[in-house]
Simulated assay, not measured.
Amino acid sequence: MHVTFARNPPLPPPLRINETELVVVPSLKVLGLHIQSDLHWDIQVNGMAAKAGRKLFLLKRLKKFNLPQGDLVAIYIGYVRPILEYAVPVWNSGLTKHQSDLLERLQKRACRTIMGSSYNGYSHALEHLGLSTLATRREQLCLKFARSLLDSEFRDWLPPPRTQITGRVTRNSHKLNCPKARTNRYLNSSIPYLTRLINRYDQ
């Protein structure tokens, strides 16, 4: 895969392993995560939505057996929602509004399925079923991951506190030094996003 953001990208030089030329592909799958050459998340989001949609069909079938709402919510939380949150710290900050809305619509479908005729709007359903929006969930999961980095062997993935760089103690010196971003693409990538979350909630 050749990562490039040009509209008309040049052809990369051929690479060979044991006289076999490697094929250039527009995307590849790494540990269940679809990485595109333009670093967008269309394939990943569409794949998650399709897989979760198939699971929602199972939820609809179980509803016909008159399972209690609590059991249906547990099934959704255990078997459907994890699909929509797989590897979320990697891609959440790069979602477009359309992609975020697509994922949220799947949870709305789940709420309508679980509540049936008593469904009276998404906000009411979330409160009644004890759920939060997927957007809120994703931010919480990313914050939890960022906090875990601070206390792990991967601490250097995040930037150091500002005081460690400047040597001065100021009101904000305890905050992490947010990486400078020349492009929105980098600004909305994982590390700057996780850094902002830590500074917003914990520092």
Rank of each mutant, 00 (worst) to 15 (best):
Y122S: 02
S93G: 08
L129W: 11
D151C: 08
I198M: 13
L129M: 12
R7A: 08
Q203F: 13
G116C: 06
L141I: 15
H124L: 00
T195F: 04
G121N: 10
S93Y: 12
T20L: 12
G32M: 01
L28C: 01
T163D: 08
R138Y: 05
R168C: 09
G53M: 02
L158T: 10
S117R: 07
G53H: 07
L143A: 14
N199W: 05
Y122Q: 05
S118I: 05
D71V: 14
F65M: 10
L176C: 10
I75N: 00
Y186P: 06
N177T: 06
S123D: 09
T183M: 09
S118E: 06
S132V: 11
P68L: 01
H174T: 07
V24S: 09
Y193E: 04
S152W: 12
A6D: 15
T113L: 10
L176P: 13
W41G: 01
G116F: 07
R147D: 06
D38G: 01
H34K: 12
P89E: 14
A52T: 07
R171L: 05
I165H: 01
L39A: 08
V88E: 00
C178H: 14
D38K: 05
F65H: 09
Q107V: 00
T133N: 02
G78H: 02
K63L: 04
P68H: 04
P12H: 02
